[in-house]
């Protein structure tokens, strides 16, 4: 079974997002791997451990994706591939999906896993876009992926805790919500070690025409309301909570 994991990095939400002239200053921000792609990577590695699959981590070179790909190698993927070209941080998901779909089509993967979503996919999730462009069977909000010969079995989450188990012929693409286990951790020392011994393969490509949506502006939402804030002193906060529950007659005894 030949598996691809499509990965991307996204702005780190730990940092305050400052909008400048209606856009994010992407070149000045720090990026982290999208958390759902990390889940997809973990699920692929679990499948590999279960069934001996060959796993390739794939990313589009929109900045510094090397650390993300070396980390994937350190975690256990067989190959890391970077799609290189004249791509900026502002590459749209639609453009990214076009590049990824073309690469996956050429490589004839049996199974493609990626995160169910990312925090920045305003113009569509990579999972659906790539599957649609490739015209292959797909599902999102997926967990518990197992493979058998040329088929893949998985659980799709509906809403309210209801789920369904499906069986799908390969080639297939799944948008992973969560891996069976929390993503494994590798030390920076191990990543550095891999950096010395392994290489990231590069595949050149360029972006063709894709449908666009015009973003008029990006801004901090004016919320309909905001909580009345009690500060950060635990004693004060605890007293406030007790008082408000008492006032609303929600305390026992």
């Amino acid at each position: 079974m030949k598996i691809a994991v499509l990965m991307k990095d996204v702005p780190d939400l730990v940092e305050d997002l400052e909008v400048e002239d209606g856009a994010l200053p992407l070149d000045e921000m720090s990026f982290v791997p999208s958390e759902w792609d990390d889940q997809a990577l973990e699920e692929a590695l679990l499948i590999k451990e279960e069934d001996g699959a060959d796993v390739t981590a794939v990313a589009v070179d929109t900045g510094d994706v090397d650390t993300m790909l070396y980390t994937a190698l350190a975690k256990g993927v067989d190959r890391a591939v970077k799609i290189v070209g004249d791509f900026s941080r502002s590459l749209t998901n639609r453009q990214r999906a076009q590049l990824l779909a073309r690469y996956c089509q050429n490589e004839r993967f049996d199974l493609i896993l990626t995160g169910v979503q990312a925090i920045d996919d305003l113009d569509g999730q990579i999972a659906g876009l790539v599957a649609g462009l490739m015209g292959i069977g797909h599902a999102s909000v997926v967990r518990d992926v197992h493979v058998a010969q040329d088929r893949v079995r998985f659980v799709q989450e509906y809403s309210g805790g209801k789920m369904a188990e499906f069986d799908l012929a390969c080639p297939a693409l799944l948008g992973i919500q969560a891996a069976r286990k929390p993503p494994r951790y590798v030390t920076i020392a191990k990543v550095r070690q891999v950096q010395k011994s392994a290489e990231i393969d590069e595949v050149e490509d360029s972006v063709g025409e894709t449908p666009v949506v015009t973003v008029r502006r990006l801004y901090k939402p004016e919320s309909g309301g905001h909580a009345e804030m009690w500060g950060d002193d635990v004693e004060t906060v605890a007293n406030h909570i007790v008082a408000i529950l008492e006032e609303k007659k929600l305390l026992r005894g």
Partner: peptide, 23 residues
């Protein structure tokens, strides 16, 4: 934007070569 929307939205947009706006 439920499981159905996550499944169908982007893929149908891609298949039809249409624009897509999420969330």
């Amino acid at each position: 934007n439920t499981t159905m929307g996550m499944d169908l939205g982007a893929s149908v947009a891609a298949r039809r070569n249409w624009s897509m706006v999420a969330y």
